[in-house]
C-alpha cells in the first residue's frame, strides 16, 4: 500500500550541475556562526545574490540574481532539491545541511552524494536519496521553470512517484527509522556504554601508549 510521507514530498527545484560542493551550498563567511540555525537566507549565496554577502547583513537589502532558480517565486516553497552526481562534495561543514534545512528543503535527490554530506543529512532529518542517472534525467527533462511540479515519496516502501513514473530507492533501515521516528543517535549509542567500556579496557591493555 502506498504510504506517502507528506514531510518529504512536495514541489521540487532543480540544479542541473554535478559536483556541487558545500562551499557553494554555504560559503565560508557564514560558517562563523556558533548556532545551527539562521543559514537559510545564505543558501547558495554566491549564485543567489549579485553581491558578496556578509554574515550580519539583512538579505532583503541585497541584489538578487533573478536568473537563479532559487529566486523564482514559484519555487520559494519547494522542499525537494534535485541535482546530479557527487552532490555535497568538499568540506565537511554541517552548515551546508543546516542551510538547506533552514531554507525548507527536506529531501535532496541526486545521482550520488559525497560521503560526509550524506551522513550529515540524516543527522538533521533530511532525506538524501540517490536515483539512477536515467531516473534523475527523466525528472530534469520534464522540469520547467514556469510551473512547480510535485514529487511524492513513500519512505516506508522506498518508492518515489513522479508523474507516471515510480522509482525504487535504497535506504538502510536505520536511516529510515531516524527520519520517521527522529531517533536520538547519541542516546542510542550510549546504550552501548558497557560494551564501549569493556572494549576500552581490553584495548588499553593492548595499546598502553595510547592512554595517559
Amino acid at each position: 500500500m502506498k504510504q506517502i510521507s507528506n514531510e518529504f514530498s512536495g514541489t521540487f527545484i532543480c540544479l542541473d550541475k554535478s559536483n556541487i560542493d558545500t562551499d557553494q551550498i554555504i560559503p565560508k563567511q557564514f560558517l562563523k556562526s556558533i548556532k545551527k540555525t539562521g543559514f537559510g537566507d545564505n543558501l547558495f549565496d554566491g549564485w543567489r545574490y549579485l553581491d558578496e554577502g556578509t554574515i550580519d547583513q539583512e538579505s532583503s537589502s541585497r541584489m538578487v540574481n533573478k536568473d537563479f532558480i532559487f529566486n523564482n517565486k514559484l519555487f520559494i516553497n519547494s522542499n525537494i532539491l534535485v541535482s546530479r552526481e557527487n552532490f555535497g562534495c568538499g568540506s565537511s561543514r554541517e552548515h551546508a545541511v543546516w542551510a538547506l534545512k533552514d531554507f525548507g528543503i527536506k529531501t535532496v535527490i541526486a545521482e550520488s552524494f559525497a560521503d560526509i554530506f550524506y551522513n550529515n543529512c540524516f543527522k538533521n532529518g533530511l532525506l538524501a536519496l540517490s536515483l539512477k542517472k536515467s531516473e534523475v534525467s527523466k525528472i530534469f527533462e520534464n522540469f520547467n521553470e514556469n510551473s512547480a511540479q510535485s514529487i511524492e515519496i513513500d519512505l516506508i516502501n522506498q518508492v518515489l512517484y513522479y508523474g507516471d513514473s515510480e522509482f525504487k530507492f535504497e535506504l538502510d533501515d536505520y536511516k529510515k527509522k531516524c527520519l520517521l521516528e527522529g531517533l536520538d543517535e547519541i542516546g542510542a549509542s550510549l546504550k552501548f556504554t558497557d560494551q564501549i567500556k569493556s572494549f576500552e579496557k581490553n584495548y588499553q591493555l593492548k595499546n598502553p601508549w595510547l592512554f595517559k
Binding site: 565537511s92 560526509i116 551522513n119 543517535e185 547519541i186 549509542s189 550510549l190 556504554t193 564501549i196 576500552e200
Partner: peptide, 18 residues
C-alpha cells in the same frame, strides 16, 4: 576521517563514531 558537527558531538559523548 573528516566528520560533521553532529559526529563531533557523538564522539565527544561516546568516544565512538557510527
Amino acid at each position: 576521517m573528516g566528520i560533521g558537527t553532529s559526529e563531533v558531538e557523538h564522539v565527544l559523548a561516546t568516544q565512538c563514531l557510527i
